[in-house]
Each structure stands twice: as C-alpha cells, then as structure tokens.
Amino acid sequence: MNQASQYLLALAKRNIQAYIANPEAKAAMVTGSTATGQADIYSDVEMFIYYDELPNLDKLQSARQQNQGSEPIRILNGYNEGFFGEFYFIDGVQFQIGNVTIAFWEQDIATILEKLKVTSTLQKALSGMLDCIPLYGEMLIQEWKRQIANYPDALARAMVDKHLDFFPIWALQEHLATRDTTLFQHQIRLQVGQNILGVLAGLNRLYYSTFQFKRMKQFIEQMNIAPENLYMRLESLYHQEPLSVADQLKELVAETVELVELYMPDIDTSQVRKSLARQGYIWKPVSEENK
C-alpha cells in the first residue's frame, strides 16, 4: 500500500467512527483506490456503512458535522428505498459516503448473481466489495465477499452472450471515410473494445461495468483467458485514427471469438463469424436495357 493510500485509510478509520456509533450500523468498509493501495493526490475516499435501518437525516448530518465535513457537494437521495449518499470534503479530501440498509445491498447482490443483470453498474459495486477493507462488522462483510467471489456459471455465460456483438467496422472503412462520421467511428471503436472486455470478463469470471471503467491494465492482468498482449494492443487502438485500426479490431475480435469457442463451445458464434467475414460493397445503377 503506497503512502497516499495509507494516509487516506487513516482518515477513513478516523471518520467512520461518527457513523458506526449509531447502534443500527452493522458493518462499514472502504473501497476504491484507498483499499487497493493505488491512491494518489487526486483520489477520493469511498466508504459504505450498512444498517438494519437508515438513521434519520439529522443523525447523518450530525455525523458529517462531527467529522468537520463541508456542506455536501452532491447528494444521492434514495432514503425511502434504503440508501442515502453524500459527497463532501474533509481536510481537503473528497469523501463519498454511502449509507445503505442491509436489505437494499443484498437485493443489489441478487440483481447480479441471481437476476443476471449483466449491464448493470452494480457489477462495479460487487467488484468494489471484493477489494474493500472492512472497517467494522468484518464477519458480515466477509460473508458478502464469499457470496460475490462465487461467480455463477450462468452469469459468465450471460456476460458472453450479451457482449458477443461487434459492429463490422472493418467492412465499412471506405464507406465511413466518404461521409461525415467522425463521432460514429469513435463510438464504434469504443463499443467494440468494451464488448471485447465484456466477453473476456465472462470467460474469466470477472465483474465488469463500463461505468467509470479505470485501470484497464490491472483489470486485464487478472485474466487467464485473453488474446496475447491484449492490454498493449487494446490501448494502442485509442491513440490512432479510428478507421486506421479497423483491421486490428477485427483481429482482436477474431481471437476473442476463438477463445469463446474453446472455453464455451455451446455459445453460438455464427453471427459474429458472419460479421468477421463481411466485406464492403458498392452498388451501381442498372439501366433498363441491361436488366
């Protein structure tokens, strides 16, 4: 753990006390770069406190004031549903405090593990739980970690099924180059890259969300199943003109499909194979006499 992470963790341990003093609080943790030991001077502190029932808003305001926190710069108000979030500053550091009922959080876990909502940003939350450092109620947090670490086969398949969809930009290079499609080209390149990672996340049983996706290298380094030199190849795609990398995207998609066929042979890859074989075309007017 680097020095910045140690400093932020010490702040988190100090400032969590005002929240866990509430008898309804059953567990608390810090997540994000503070927990993974990768924080820097730009990092914030992400903390969650879990309750049987949420304290009233006056008590949450009192906890913030006890910590000499600033006025909130952002509030996520789902109080009646079971969560209340505040973003505020303490000693110049932004704290993102999530107050959540145990019932609400366990519903979130079920949304991914049982309902298989593969595109939900909650995948980021589950990944954050795996990385977190418990600050209070460690037994409860370790039980959640155990559940989340048991990545369901059905979720892995659903991830691959959902993301196995690639727009064949490689077949439309000349077409797109003749039109005002700059934004569309960037959109396609981004979507193809995100879907490659989504498929590989399923194959490797990793939680993945495109929401605020950071530290791609670290994410890819967790993969045992991936195209060779994936990080450098994928990273380089976004430092070149979109159409110039179409063939490189095609290669990565083809290698990803091969991995799906190897590790999940029951997945239907026929449509992706058709898109990989697709070629560009143009039409020419046909006169009546040539019909």
Rank of each mutant, 00 (worst) to 15 (best):
V257H: 02
V272T: 08
E289H: 08
G92N: 14
W170E: 14
E138G: 01
R215D: 13
G78Y: 15
K291M: 09
M216P: 03
L130S: 09
Q147P: 10
V272Q: 01
D108K: 04
A177W: 14
S209E: 14
S275V: 05
Y42N: 03
L113V: 09
N2L: 07
E289S: 11
E24S: 07
Q147F: 14
G128I: 01
F211Q: 10
P227Q: 12
T210G: 11
V45I: 07
A25L: 09
L206P: 13
P72T: 05
L135Y: 09
T256E: 06
P168H: 09
W105S: 02
K26L: 12
M139H: 11
N67T: 07
T119G: 05
T119R: 13
L259D: 08
Y208M: 04
V45C: 02
W144S: 02
I109A: 09
T34E: 04
E174G: 06
L249V: 15
Q123M: 10
C132V: 10
E86Q: 13
E143W: 03
Q185P: 03
E24I: 00
Y50Q: 07
P227Y: 12
V45H: 01
N56T: 15
T210D: 15
Q17F: 05
A18M: 13
K162D: 15
G69S: 00
K26Y: 08
E288D: 08
Y42R: 01
V93C: 10
I148Y: 07
A277Q: 10
M216D: 03
K162M: 15
L203A: 04
H186V: 13
V199E: 02
T178N: 11
R179I: 06
I282F: 09
L135E: 08
I102E: 11
D108H: 10
Q185F: 00
A28F: 09
L130Q: 10
V199R: 02
E289F: 08
E241F: 06
G98M: 12
F84S: 00
W283P: 03
Y7T: 06
Q279S: 14
D153M: 01
N290D: 05
W105R: 02
E81A: 11
A35V: 13
K284R: 12
I41M: 03
Y51N: 07
E24L: 05
Q107R: 05
Y231Q: 13
T269Y: 13
I225D: 01
A201F: 09
Y151V: 01
K26A: 09
G82K: 03
A27Q: 11
D268P: 15
L60K: 04
R233K: 15
L54Y: 10
F219K: 13
A28W: 08
Y42M: 03
V253T: 08
S275I: 07
F167D: 02
G32M: 04
L252Q: 09
I148P: 04
L140Y: 11
I148D: 05
P227S: 10
T182F: 05
E241H: 15
D44A: 10
K26G: 03
Y238S: 09
Q187S: 03
E53K: 14
F219M: 11
V192H: 11
K217L: 00
A125C: 13
T119N: 11
I133N: 04
D165T: 01
K250H: 14
L8C: 12
A21I: 06
L183T: 01
R179D: 15
I225H: 03
M159N: 14
P23S: 12
K145M: 07
Q212D: 10
M29K: 08
N204V: 07
A158G: 01
Y7H: 08
P285M: 04
L122H: 07
